[in-house]
Computed example of a mutant assay.
Amino acid sequence: MTEFPELICAYVLDGKGLGTTLDWPKVNTWTADQGPIWVHLDCTHENTDAWLREHSGLDTFVIDGLMADESRPRCDDYDDGTLLVLRGVNLNPGAEPEDMVSIRMWIEADRVISTRFRRLMAVEDVRQQLSSGKGPVSTGHLVARLAASLTERMSPVIENLSDQLMGLEDKLIGIDGGETLDMRAVRYELIDCRRVAIALRRYINPQRDALARLAQFEEMWLDDRIKGRLRETVDRVTRIVEELDEIRERAAVVQDELINRISQRMEKTMYVLTVVATVMLPLGFLTGLLGINVGGMPGAESPWAFWFVCAGLVGLVVIEIWIMRRFKWI
């Protein structure tokens, strides 16, 4: 298939779990009596759009849906097929998981045409299953497998996000009065955690609605068994959405606790500064008064006057501290 870079893969399903690979010439000469076909295309190649418009037989609005740059998960039913858009976490090297990758599918009873802009690991899972003889046996089964694989690969990302938040909770709960904590680092980590949760939920929630709507369609390629698989996937996606909601709520609690810790630290610092300023204020007044250059300053000629003043200032500090302790200010 290297001669046709726009064609990622194409399989004819034998109905027993095995898929036969096809190249472009065989795809173009395929007929329904050969078995259900799955054609997976790369939208980044200009030949993909040309083939869809010239050889696929699809309507223009369907092709536009398959080639759209940005798309949210959705499910639209038409007279001759179904347009389904799903998203999965981005597990490509160097990518952020929350930068979710989309797959767009046109589904008919004996044909599935799917497109993508970036590599999706769930597609690779299904391809391996077809190569080993344990793949989907029909177009409906193919869609259910892809949806299940997309959902399955979301779970570790959500678990890692939950563990990251739990680590922040442990940091804040485990800290005591004498222990220091890098509040700035915790704050940035918390912001990143909330950002990821919000970005994931933005696409996963509508994906749940799209799959739930698909499971309600009455199509030839949707039998009761496939609908059951789709409903199971919907339940798993629902749990993921609930986990994301829980993560967001826990993150809000952690943020409140972080704000309290920062406020307590600021209050403690202001308290120390206030005590020091209170102690030093009378001392500063006296030393300023004794430092004026006017005649008649007492003790100016005495060699012991400086030490008497120092002793008096120390005594004044002791009296101030005693008064503060008496009124429980310190």
Rank of each mutant, 00 (worst) to 15 (best):
R127H: 11
D170I: 06
T269D: 09
L120H: 12
L281W: 10
R202S: 09
E124W: 02
V126C: 05
D69A: 12
V186L: 15
T274R: 05
H141I: 00
V196E: 13
T115C: 07
N293L: 05
T82V: 15
L22M: 14
Q164V: 00
G299S: 08
N205A: 15
A147N: 04
N293E: 09
E96F: 06
M1R: 13
M1V: 10
N160I: 01
E301V: 04
L120F: 12
E159G: 00
G167F: 01
R195H: 12
R87M: 07
E243D: 15
A122I: 00
R111V: 02
T151M: 02
Y78R: 09
V253L: 15
A122Q: 02
I113K: 02
M121V: 08
A212C: 04
V85K: 07
L244S: 06
V318G: 04
L283W: 01
P25I: 07
N260K: 11
A251N: 04
D79R: 11
Y78I: 01
V123G: 08
I8P: 03
T60I: 11
G135C: 03
A122H: 04
L83F: 15
L161G: 03
C310Q: 06
A252I: 01
S155E: 14
M324E: 03
R104I: 00
L222Q: 07
E98D: 11
R153M: 05
C310D: 00
L142G: 01
S149I: 02
Q207L: 09
L258D: 05
A95E: 15
L289E: 10
D14F: 03
G174T: 09
D224H: 12
R195A: 13
R231K: 14
I319G: 01
D49Q: 12
Q264V: 10
D256K: 08
R325Q: 12
L7H: 06
I259V: 14
A252L: 12
